[in-house]
Amino acid sequence: MNYFIIDEIREDNIKKVLKLYFKAKDKNYYLTRDILSFLVSEIQLLYPQYKCMGILI
């Protein structure tokens, strides 16, 4: 591989951020954050070129 080509998918400092906003019906439900974490991790697997972040509003 050529040394001047950057592997953008694997470089953490080059990744763009994908912010995912979630609105919960009940923020006090004890599994809300676990479900949010699971969803963000599944989306991260589908889009490795982004750094995925989940935000609960």
Rank of each mutant, 00 (worst) to 15 (best):
A24D: 06
L39R: 03
N2K: 06
D7N: 13
I6P: 01
E42K: 15
L36P: 00
I5K: 09
Q49H: 12
C52E: 02
K15A: 07
K25E: 14
K16H: 11
R33I: 14
I43W: 09
L56I: 14
M53R: 11
I57P: 03
Q44G: 06
F38K: 14
P48M: 01
M1L: 05
P48C: 04
M53C: 10
D12C: 04
Y30F: 15
L39Y: 15
L45N: 15
I43D: 08
D34S: 06
Y47D: 01
T32W: 02
S41V: 08
E8M: 02
P48F: 03
Y30P: 08
C52L: 05
L18K: 10
R10M: 07
L31M: 14
D26I: 03
F38I: 00
M53Y: 12
K16Q: 13
F4S: 07
M1Q: 05
D7A: 02
I9K: 13
L39E: 04
L56A: 05
S41I: 09
I5S: 09
I57F: 04
L36A: 08
I5Y: 03
I14F: 11
K16I: 06
K51D: 13
Y3V: 01
E11T: 09
R33G: 02
C52K: 01
K19R: 12
G54F: 01
Q49C: 03
L56Q: 05
I9V: 14
Y29L: 08
P48A: 06
K16A: 13
P48G: 07
A24H: 05
L45P: 03
Y3W: 04
I5E: 10
K23D: 04
D34R: 01
I55G: 03
L39G: 08
I43N: 03
I57L: 13
E11K: 07
M53P: 00
L18S: 10
R33L: 09
K16M: 07
Q44C: 02
V40Y: 00
L39K: 08
T32S: 02
I35L: 11
F38T: 14
L31T: 08
L18A: 13
L31C: 04
K23I: 14
I6K: 11
F4D: 09
R10G: 11
G54W: 08
K15H: 08
D26L: 02
K23A: 05
I6G: 03
M53S: 09
M53W: 08
I14H: 10
K51Q: 14
F38S: 14
N2I: 04
D26Y: 12
Y3G: 07
R33M: 11
L45H: 12
V17E: 13
L20Q: 10
R10C: 06
I43V: 15
Y3P: 00
K23E: 15
M1P: 07
F22S: 04
S41W: 07
K19M: 10
